[in-house]
Design a protein around this nucleic acid. Structure first.
Lengths: 239, 239
DNA sequence: TCTGGTCTGTACGCTACTGTACAAAGGCCA
DNA sequence: TGGCCTTTGTACAGTAGCGTACAGACCAGA
């Protein structure tokens, strides 16, 4: 995959049959996604859907008291805005850029039209939505049963899978917001990982040094989600 | 709604236009759903989908070590088996009867056919699936941030909304499995609710005495889920 | 009427967090 | 170079829930 922007860096767009992709191509607009930008707000109609290529979007729920929790994460394997084709138009969650980069956006109505053509696009979007369901389920399970250090490993691995390099730009404060825990808890867990030689970090830059080491520490949740994504959205789609 | 079994006790079936419902009616089979029965297993293909009328089904994830956590709950407002029309065929979760009663079942292929006709049935099922997404999200949030006693209130209210009476047949042990906590924790939280006069229970029978009292104690999660279900699946569907 | 099983209550030390407070270190800009 | 802000580290008491243990209450069946 080249560094030049290309819609096919997004796996959903890449998996479309050429004819379908050609139809969308003129309407896809490359946009920069700066860290922290809110792509959609809870309960608000979305004008566009987003196909990330090099950015990562977090879906998070913000509580009345302001605390938050990440529900799921969307990178170049997916799309932000499933509620448009699911029929609800809005969601209770908020979508924010967790890792800066780019995405292609498409007018909501055009996506709905494509969905309603009931072809490969529809099948693809529904399978992706099921994968998203699994990710949300597993977030619920992980929040219930697993320790912070394991959740941090899961979070790092899920992010890593959606980025081209081993570097994340991400302060501990932001990670804490995503996981819905105290910043100090992240400091401690990340310190352990650093002392174990699995990661290195420095003022908002995290480098994963030993991916296998993270996989050895992570809870089963990570593998469940990854396996399900691979099953539902294989590299070569048979639509 | 009469006590006689009627497919229209299930809100999804009730919301279909008459023509569509007539088409499905001959294929709907009323089945008894005894407490504890597994409707579907993680990773296994489902022969049928289920439209509960008087039973409640829990979707739960069972971990490698045997502990479990409820992801979502399905009653007469929904359907068990969304993975069939979403295209994945299987799920990572398990579906078990949490409250005995009845359901109508339908051969999986017939549901897929109905879905692919791309009419009201498809729109309805997709809106329901979005509501399910919200419920799962909120389970994740609640597991992260709220105390056991609030989660118990949420669980009781969600169950109550799916049953015709104020009585649940449910031991504390089972509730603990659903919530993914210790049985003793449920004993304590339920004891508090009983002392406050909100519920009465006795060896597997729980009676809700003061629903408003529960609503006063519950966290915001319950209301978020309920509002979203009402929004996506109103009593009179405009399809 | 006795017995065994299921369900509920209570207690105790332990762990993983929380809330709070403050200090130190790194980077940016005047 | 100095000063400020952001980011990270550490500490400490408080709390919710865990693992474990055990006892009492209730029910069904012999």
């Amino acid at each position: 995959m080249s560094d030049n922007p290309d819609p096919r860096q997004n796996h959903l767009l890449d998996a479309l049959p050429p004819a379908e992709r050609e139809r969308l191509l003129p309407h896809l607009e490359l946009v920069a996604m700066p860290l922290g930008q809110a792509v959609s707000e809870s309960g608000m109609h979305m004008r566009h859907v987003y196909f990330p290529t090099t950015c990562i979007i977090s879906l998070l729920y913000v509580m009345e008291d302001g605390s938050s929790a990440e529900i799921a994460v969307v990178g170049n394997e997916g799309i932000v805005g499933v509620s448009l084709f699911m029929g609800g138009e809005t969601t209770t969650s908020r979508a924010v850029v967790q890792s800066a980069g780019h995405a292609y956006r498409l007018k909501g109505q055009l996506l709905k039209d494509a969905f309603l053509r009931a072809g490969p696009m529809q099948r693809l979007l529904l399978r992706y939505t099921q994968a998203l369901l699994t990710q949300m389920s597993q977030t619920a399970v992980c929040n219930r049963h697993h320790r912070l250090d394991q959740q941090l490993c899961r979070w790092l691995l899920l992010s890593l899978d959606r980025l081209p390099s081993n570097d994340l730009t991400m302060t501990q404060e932001l990670i804490a917001n995503m996981l819905g825990v105290r910043r100090e808890g992240v400091t401690e867990a990340a310190g352990d990982l650093q002392r174990a030689g699995l990661i290195r970090y420095n003022r908002g830059k995290i480098t994963v040094l030993d991916r296998a080491g993270l996989e050895a520490r992570v809870c089963e949740c990570y593998q469940v989600v990854k396996t399900e994504f691979d099953r539902l959205l294989p590299a070569q789609h048979i639509l």
